[in-house]
Design a protein around this nucleic acid. Structure first.
Lengths: 134, 134
DNA sequence: AGATAAAAGGATATCTTTGTCTTATTTTTA
DNA sequence: TAAAAATAAGACAAAGATATCCTTTTATCT
């Protein structure tokens, strides 16, 4: 479904959304410990997300990762595309070169439905709020 | 979503269902050429499927792979479980140790729906017939 | 019986993903 | 200004997935 990298990244972004705000930031180390994932590995994923402007970061003492105003509309789809590429959203689940509604593979409509259900999800901050409410 | 192995296996099984029947069998070489996938690699996948009784095989000249009567109810789910394991059907899409309807991850209901839509698909032979009708 | 055709199985090679370690760069703080 | 804290970046290691090759076993056909 998703690569391990992508799972880590999604969880990390949700954690950032839930645990930062205003001036508050959170370090890669702290995130890694909370999620119980390898720190250096996660750090690279966070760098990648930051380079693509899905999250924000600041260096130096007191620095860390956070969601700036321009990150508030970032979606799960954005994170997935950034880490795993667009395959999940574009290519056939069976790897067929041609697979469309005209000439669908047996899984075509199932994967399309899944795809769309992910595309329609709310923003990362909104998802983080939903989790907190439970 | 699926590993390359699993994609090959699914396509191969559908090809077998579509191109064999009665006494007719099909060799690994012929399947590999039709699907344009590496022959030796596919052969191992077919062996694995045969060991688990999802497909049948016979050795020697004129041998090959086919669907015996006891393979007629084999499903896509069976093939996926055989090659990729049961992760797709059991574990959380984000890799969380606990993720249930009580304490769902943000993707829980979406993956559940996808899972179920795969579980409800018809047998491999039935899917192969549907393809032929198009 | 011998030749041939095909699956079964094992060993090995290559590539990708995942994980670790070290150094550089930037920022804050004392 | 020096030390400390944090991200950024690069090299490398380990594990897993993918791919290839070779030998063995089994069945068929002449």
């Amino acid at each position: 479904m998703f690569s391990k990298s992508c799972k880590y990244a999604i969880r990390a972004v949700l954690h950032i959304a839930a645990h930062t705000g205003g001036e508050k930031k959170i370090g890669a180390k702290e995130i890694a410990e909370a999620l119980e994932v390898p720190k250096s590995f996660l750090a690279k994923l966070l760098q990648q997300l930051a380079r693509h402007h899905l999250i924000s970061s600041s260096k130096g003492a007191g620095g860390g990762f956070y969601l700036a105003p321009e990150n508030q509309e970032v979606s799960l789809e954005d994170v997935i595309r950034c880490i795993d590429g667009e395959d999940l959203f574009t290519s056939c689940a069976l790897g067929l070169p041609v697979c469309s509604s005209d000439k669908p593979c047996p899984l075509h409509c199932h994967t399309l439905a899944f795809r769309q259900s992910i595309e329609q999800m709310r923003s990362i901050p909104a998802l983080a709020r939903e989790i907190k409410e439970n």
